[in-house]
Amino acid sequence: MTFVHHAFPNNAPIAAQDQHLVEQTLHQAEVFKGHFLHAFRDQVRLPNGDIATREYVIHPGAVMVIALLDDGRLVMERQYRYPMQQVMIEFPAGKLDPGEDRLACAQRELLEETGYRATEWAHAGVLHPVISYSTEFIDIWFARGLRLGERQLDQGEFLDVFSASVDELLAWSRDGQLTDAKTLTGLLWLQNHLSGAWPLRWQPAP
C-alpha cells in the first residue's frame, strides 16, 4: 500500500537557510503497524535530485521526569529492557496516550511507576533520542515537593524504584553502567539547573 503526504508528528517549519538540505517525499509505504509502533518505507528525492529510500518508525512521544527528593537525591528506576537484554538505570518515563496533555502524562507516569506525587512541576525541554530512524520525542519535566504513596504499575510492568545522588549518576555514566540516552540528557539538564545556568519556571501541580 502506498501513502503520500503522511503527516509527521511535531513538524516544525524549515528555515529558509536550510531549504537546500531538505529531502522531498515522493511515496510512502506502510511496512508494519503494531500496538505501539508504526513503520514506513519512503522514497525521497535528495537535494541533488537523486532518489533514496528512508525507513523510519512513527512514535507517539513520551515524557521523562527528573524527580528531586528533599535531600537532593533523585528518584530512579531499574527496568529490564527486552531489546537490550539488560536491566537499565533510568529516570521515570512513559509514552503519551492519544490526546494526553504532556504534564498530565508526566504526573501519571511518576505516580504509576514510583508512587510519588509532586507539589511543583517545571518543564525543561524536549529531546529526540533516535533522529535517524524514529519520530520519537521525549518531553523533560522536573518535579519536587514529593510525597510517597502506592505505585500503580501497568499489567506486565516490573521495575525497581530507588534513589541516587547526582555524583552517583555521573559516576555510573562515566563507567558505562548508565547508558540510557534520555537519562544522560536528563543529567545534562540537571547539572545545568543545579549550577544556575539553566533556570526553571516552577508551577504548582494542577
Rank of each mutant, 00 (worst) to 15 (best):
E168K: 05
E30F: 08
H38M: 06
G61W: 10
F40Q: 07
L26S: 02
W202Q: 04
L200Q: 01
P98I: 00
E113N: 01
V87K: 14
R117T: 15
T25H: 05
E112H: 14
L146I: 09
M88W: 04
L194A: 00
Q107W: 06
F142I: 13
L188I: 07
G176F: 06
T53H: 04
H5F: 04
W198N: 02
A67N: 09
D50G: 14
M76V: 03
G149F: 11
R102W: 05
F137R: 14
F36A: 06
V75L: 03
Q155N: 10
V75K: 02
L153I: 07
W189K: 00
A205Q: 07
G99M: 11
R81P: 02
R81C: 06
P13W: 08
A181C: 03
A181M: 04
A62E: 14
L200A: 01
A106R: 08
R45A: 05
D154L: 15
I140H: 00
P129D: 14
D18T: 08
H27R: 06
G186F: 03
L148H: 02
V63P: 01
S134H: 07
R102I: 11
P47F: 07
L153Y: 10
G156N: 08
Q155K: 12
I66P: 01
G94H: 01
T185I: 07
Y133Q: 12
K33G: 01
V126E: 13
G156A: 02
V130N: 11
D71R: 05
A205M: 04
V31N: 05
M64K: 09
M88R: 11
L69V: 00
T179S: 05
L170M: 13
W189I: 02
P129M: 12
P47S: 05
L169G: 04
R151K: 15
R73I: 01
D180R: 07
G196F: 09
V4H: 10
A67S: 11
V126L: 12
N192L: 12
G196L: 03
W189C: 01
A171I: 10
N48E: 15
L37W: 03
E113G: 01
R147E: 13
L74N: 07
T114M: 02
N11C: 03
R73K: 12
A52M: 08
I89P: 00
L200P: 12
L170D: 11
R151V: 12
P13L: 12
V57W: 13
H20K: 09
S163A: 14
V44T: 07
T179C: 03
D175G: 01
S132T: 08
Q203G: 03
Q107D: 08
S163E: 15
Q86C: 04
P92V: 15
D180S: 10
Q24S: 03
G156Y: 04
G145M: 07
V57N: 13
N11K: 05
R147Q: 13
L153H: 10
S195T: 06
D71T: 00
L178S: 07
A171F: 06
L21V: 07
W198S: 04
L69S: 00
W121D: 14
D180L: 08
R144I: 06
L26W: 02
R45Q: 13
E55T: 15
F142L: 13
I138V: 15
P199H: 02
I140Q: 01
H5P: 10
L187S: 00
V22S: 11
R73A: 05
L159P: 03
Q155A: 13
A118Y: 06
Q203W: 00
